[in-house]
Design a binder for these strands. Structure first.
Lengths: 335, 335
DNA sequence: GTGAAAGCGCTAACAA
DNA sequence: TTGTTAGCGCTTTCAC
């Protein structure tokens, strides 16, 4: 049940069958029809391995993620997938498995096996060894979310996003603004949290506002972490605590909201909260946020590497969109 | 930069190099060392296509999901991935892309391309055509979550899970219990919601309790859907509304909780809520639930197909664990 | 518009 | 322990 069988049944040569099956020009229409029909009848299933060997193209791209079970990554993978499917490419997933997974082996063993024609890296920072090993394969590469030295990057401008958030809060009259961010031990690009925090600090400084160290809280980029950070941040008396909290992710913002509720704080009366992401849950609870579209970012990244695989020069990728979505959790500070 | 180069450099034959590289026995240790070193120096990268062609084994398994950005699927993929990586297999992801994605093409074009040695299907029901096309490839297959005719299945016993939940509520003294379930249009196995609902109904009937039709609400298996269903369910007066709600997923339970809060209902005083899953968010808000472990299910599924690929007979897979986790959202009904 | 033949990079008998 | 020899199933010149 290879191309050969079809050839013998139709009385054609393997070459012609191959051409017909791939829809190449310069094959008689009748021939194409015939070949297709016979292929169907025989239940022909092409072998990507053979095609890959012959052409050097695997028609597959690798997507490398720190972990999968995170809103951003899952959405981005979905976006990449859409474009790959459209182009007839398969998606092979390389999950680094968080801090626990032994990255090294994953890298060497699989990613370098010529199984894919290109790589999309999600929020990854590679060390020197990893970088050079990957470069070795000469594959087109791009990273989503967070700049990586020497690689093309698609993602929002984190500094600008932070500035937008602060601007919104400032505009409402807030002056006492705290930040919840921190490192995501699950492996998010370390640059992202820093850039958001710096963007926050810069914007505050530009407004002549000082931020006490204790107002730079660590929410570990998770719901539970946000709740914990919020509990600490909001424990003090009304005059001592912030009137607004800017969270570097919606999940943390949701956590802060939970903490506020537990403390009986009215939102947005006594506390305003703004996040980043555009998480579905945020919409449901009315969370104000700077929404980004990881799926779109995934699509853009996929198109970029696909183009490169097809020989295009690695064009410049513009920053991804991020839009302020004002909902119910931000308002004018009380008093 | 293939096996050939290494052969010429070392003065050995391709065969020996191949053996050495794969760590086969009956190769002199010195030879192995030499080959390995030269391979490293040359920056040798094996070609999975060539190996696959020669052996007929791709060292990859496909994972088919309705959508990726769902708690259960993401976790399960992670579990599958762990085992695959351990076995040196790659994971190729087939995302059906929900109701929008054109399933047909996805199926025929990719999954059948001999790119993988086995398939793990997540919560999928296949129609006849799909089934027969897949069978055609003679690949080991298994489905996670929800029974599928003619295929091995790993997952919790949904009927038993529902009975456990109802039992918990009954034990607390509840008699007026509503159910939030419904179809997940994103493509969850249609059987799962039905089995949970039937399990609920059966358990209620066994306790001599009747459930009004309006207390079988549709939460679309999402947070927002749960909130909407909850809003309707809880809108009536205290004597008319249920004292407890059993949700077929934690996400919906979270939504119901939100609805309850918006209506000012005390939990668990005026309303008890129990879910299914063991979602992280549930833990943070203190949601009582029947926890399952999709990652473990993924691991089990992966091991099962891997064993089959290695020639083992398709053994029986026992039902996955599901454990009642009592937290703060369920309690004795007021009054 | 179609065919013949070489070869992609590796593995697997079978010898030696 | 190592080498020789065929392929695996497809694509791709180069002829016809």
């Amino acid at each position: 049940m290879g191309i050969q069988e079809i050839a013998t049944v139709t009385g054609l040569s393997k070459a012609t069958v191959s051409r017909a099956l791939r829809g190449l020009p310069s094959v008689a229409e009748t021939t194409v029809d015939h070949v297709r029909r016979v292929a169907d009848e025989l239940g022909y299933v092409p072998s990507s391995a053979a095609a890959g060997l012959a052409t050097g193209r695997q028609r597959a791209v690798g997507v490398v993620v720190p972990v999968i079970d995170r809103w951003f990554y899952a959405k981005a993978i979905g976006g990449v997938d859409v474009e790959l499917r459209r182009a007839g490419y398969d998606l092979v997933l390389y999950n680094l498995g968080g801090p626990g997974g032994d990255r090294d082996r994953a890298f060497r063993r699989s990613m370098l096996r010529h199984r894919v024609d290109a790589l999309v890296l999600l929020s990854l920072v590679l060390d020197e060894t990893e970088r050079s090993e990957l470069e070795l394969t000469r594959h087109p590469m791009i990273v989503i979310g967070g700049p990586a030295p020497g690689l093309r990057n698609v993602g929002v401008d984190d500094v600008a996003v932070a500035a937008t958030a602060v601007g919104h809060l400032l505009g409402l009259g807030h002056r006492r603004i705290a930040y919840v961010g921190g490192q995501d031990e699950a492996g998010m690009n370390v640059a992202v949290p820093f850039r958001r925090r710096d963007g926050f600090l810069d914007a505050m400084a530009a407004a002549g506002l000082e931020v006490p160290r204790s107002w730079l809280a660590d929410g570990r980029f998770s719901f539970a972490g946000g709740a914990a950070a919020g509990a600490v941040l909001l424990a003090e008396s009304a005059s001592e605590r912030p009137t607004a909290v800017f969270c570097a992710s919606d999940e943390m913002a949701l956590g802060v909201l939970l903490a506020a509720r537990r403390l009986g704080l009215r939102v947005p009366g006594e506390l305003s909260v703004i996040g980043i992401d555009g998480h579905e849950y945020g919409a449901a609870v009315g969370l104000t946020t700077i929404a980004q579209d990881p799926e779109a970012q995934g699509r853009v990244a996929a198109r970029a590497v696909l183009a490169e695989v097809d020989g295009a020069r690695p064009g410049v990728v513009p920053p991804a969109a991020a839009t302020l979505v004002v909902r119910g959790t931000t308002g004018v500070p009380a008093g």
